[in-house]
């Protein structure tokens, strides 16, 4: 359960952004959590509520987009979605693949007022 640490880092990113942009308040924040990021979206949601309570961000809404793993196959040149415990090209079966999505742990946008 390191989601509380992640939530606190997220709060730091939001706070820095508000100061830099001279904004008063964050209404919502959108993040992407990849299937290979090591973070569980539900746990992050709970941790964020806990970490933000009694702070200026306590009314900030967190939207989490879960990003499945996609791999690029060097043999058949396709990009396919795969489960995190099956990193093979589902098209040709090759293991000669690169992960192109699924490692995200990113803040995408912040809605401010």
């Amino acid at each position: 359960m390191h989601e509380l640490s992640i939530a606190m880092s997220l709060i730091d990113v939001i706070t820095e952004t508000l100061i830099r942009e001279n904004a008063d308040k964050a209404l919502s924040v959108t993040v992407e959590v990849g299937a290979l990021s090591g973070v569980v979206p539900e746990a992050l949601q709970t941790a964020f509520v806990k970490a933000a309570s009694n702070t200026p961000l306590q009314d900030c809404r967190l939207s989490i987009f879960y990003v499945p793993v996609s791999v690029h196959c060097s043999v058949c040149e396709r990009i396919c979605q795969v489960p995190p415990d099956g990193l093979l090209c589902p098209n040709c079966g090759s293991s000669n693949i690169d992960i192109v999505r699924g490692r995200e742990l990113d803040v995408i946008r912040i809605e401010t007022s």
Binding site: I6, S9, L10, A23, V107, I108, R109, E111, T112
Partner: peptide
């Protein structure tokens, strides 16, 4: 109160650790 704005941030949550 400022006008509502959407800020496209696109940054790693763990950027400080990185």
């Amino acid at each position: 109160m400022n006008q509502p704005r959407i800020l496209e941030v696109r940054t790693r949550i763990l950027k400080d650790n990185d």
